[in-house]
Amino acid sequence: MSHHIVEVKNLRHVYSDGTVALKDISFVITHGESVGIIGANGAGKSTLLQHLNGCLEPTGGTIHIGHTPLSKGTLPDIRRTIGMVFQDPDDQLFMPTVFDDVAFGPLNLGYSPADIEERVTEVLDLVGAGHLRDKPPYHLSGGEKKRVAIATVLSMSPDILVMDEPTNGLDPFARRQLMKLLRDFEHTRIFTSHDLDMVLELCNRVIVLHEGEVWADGPALEIFSNDKLLAECRLEKPLSMQGCPACGSDPKGSLQY
């Protein structure tokens, strides 16, 4: 049995004010896949992510993580399996120092102090933040915060990594650094993002959400080549697939304008 499978079946969510955020969502993500969930604002991306680790309860439908149904009883296990990186690192980094923050998850899981020391050092080095370990989170730059936020999740050795807008607000260099880091992971990865170039580079599969429904689900290149679909869902081709605005040359052989 693999822990790495995410199976969502007929998921429906209605907020208490009556807004239908998710109408009927179904998909299966298997071991080691890297999946981008894209869609316009309000398409239901964040709502969907919040279901994956039980922050929201479905109005209808089921979610299985590694063949375990998501329910109150299985939540602690599932939360260990799914590492969730939030959009705003300030929400995720709440401890006094970077070290404490990265150690927070392992401490809750009951690791021994020696293990924690080793684990924290390991993941901080992995994300290139070893030199920040004794700093308080509010002294970090945006890119540093993001990398530390990822470390806080990696320290619990999750099987599945879920990230909400990972490249949001990063400068080009920090964005590159982060993408390189994410590409090297062997976890099952699920991203939501408006940074379609990042999605194109990191994800081999893309799920397009539109008004609470799955409008398309397939290989990234195929989806990004479907102009009609993208226009319907208020999306655009990634910049790297568009023509050059200066010389008009086109990466794919035909002009897109």
Binding site: P76, R79, F86, D91, Q92, D100, L107, N108, P113, I116
Partner: peptide, 22 residues
């Protein structure tokens, strides 16, 4: 924000006890 922080804490196995390693 408090709600989001609480979610982030729950996502990392927070059960009401606050451990610190020092």
């Amino acid at each position: 924000r408090a709600e989001r922080i609480h979610m982030a804490m729950l996502a990392r196995g927070f059960t009401g006890e606050f451990h610190a390693c020092r």
